[in-house]
């Protein structure tokens, strides 16, 4: 081949190469055809050269992978089951109709706090303002419901306020997130404000007060324990810090309490006839009957 012919051929090939290069950068489908064609032609040679596993070994490797996936799935199920057992063993669920759900998504809210998505929704009987509990205690409340999922506002999210009872005496108060600038936010602690005079002790159990019809918060669910009491001289009510009972970062299996509205009047408790130390019948019911209700 003459020198000139070589130069012409070189120029032609360079132009062709540049065309392919530009086509590939522009995402032209013809380049993908080149790729798959080269794989089809050269691939078998490479398979032989690399000593790809013969049939039996490949079969066993595939079975191994399948069994490992199965084992992973089963251990996951066992874990979920043990969490369900914990949930059922806990007092918060007994005697209530619940739907067991699993956390499928979690997001840090722009307003502070976090919100979760559960894999249960209105088709499972979940309604807005249902209470969500974990095996340790209160998780939050349902704020939005879709047919198969629901969104949960976690305890301690911005603007979440829970009416609570504190300690053996049942002091009334509210638990809310610690306001911005209100001191160090230690491990997601919450702020407890008592609504009446009285002083809680460190270690007092904080449980929900409950709302009408159990919405948004059912009564008697553990919220957490008092970890510190802030002295506020000159004020009749006291604020304290509460450590939530549930680990809000590691939530997995939770129960949604399906609210059941009362549809028949509560019976009047009457003193049994001939009871010792008889007070006038009906009076205790007048004084103590009926739950104290409080909005969440």
């Amino acid at each position: 081949m003459s020198h000139h012919a070589k130069r012409r051929l070189l120029a032609l090939l360079v132009v062709a190469t540049l065309a392919v290069l530009v086509a590939d950068l522009a995402g032209h489908p013809a380049v993908d055809a080149i790729r798959s064609a080269s794989g089809t032609v050269v691939g078998p040679v490479q398979r032989v050269l690399s000593g790809a596993p013969p049939g039996r070994v490949a079969e066993l490797a595939a079975e191994n992978a399948r069994l490992r996936a199965e084992a992973d799935r089963l251990s996951r199920e066992v874990q979920a089951l043990s969490q369900v057992r914990d949930l059922v063993a806990d007092g918060a669920v007994t005697g209530r109709s619940v739907v067991i759900g699993q956390v499928v998504a979690s997001e840090a809210s722009a307003l502070g706090g976090r919100s979760l998505t559960l894999d249960v929704g209105s088709n499972d009987g979940v309604a807005v303002d249902s209470t969500v509990v974990g095996s340790a205690g209160l998780v939050g409340r349902v704020v939005a419901v879709a047919p198969w999922t629901s969104d949960v506002q976690l305890l301690g999210a911005a603007q979440s306020v829970v009416a609570v009872r504190v300690g053996d005496r049942g002091l009334l108060g509210t638990v809310s997130p610690i306001p911005a600038g209100g001191g160090a936010d230690d491990d997601g602690q919450l702020s407890l404000a008592l609504a009446q005079p009285g002083s809680p002790a460190v270690g007092d159990l904080v449980t929900t007060l409950g709302s009408v019809g159990g919405r948004p918060y059912a009564a008697g669910v553990t919220v957490g324990r008092v970890v510190s009491v802030e002295p506020q001289p000159g004020r009749t009510t006291v604020t304290a810090r509460v450590a939530p009972a549930v680990d809000r970062e590691g939530l997995d299996v939770v129960a949604v309490l399906v609210p059941a509205a009362r549809d028949e009047p509560r019976p009047v408790v009457e003193e049994p006839v001939g009871a010792p130390g008889g007070e006038p019948a009906g009076e205790p019911a007048g004084q103590r009957g009926g739950d104290v209700v409080g909005a969440g």
Partner: peptide
């Protein structure tokens, strides 16, 4: 000659999987 041979050999190297990206 070197350029011509280099271009041809480079194309062989490109075509043998894994195919180069960007191709060429």
């Amino acid at each position: 000659h070197g350029a011509l041979l280099g271009l041809a050999a480079g194309w062989v190297l490109e075509i043998v999987p894994p195919v180069g990206a960007p191709l060429g």
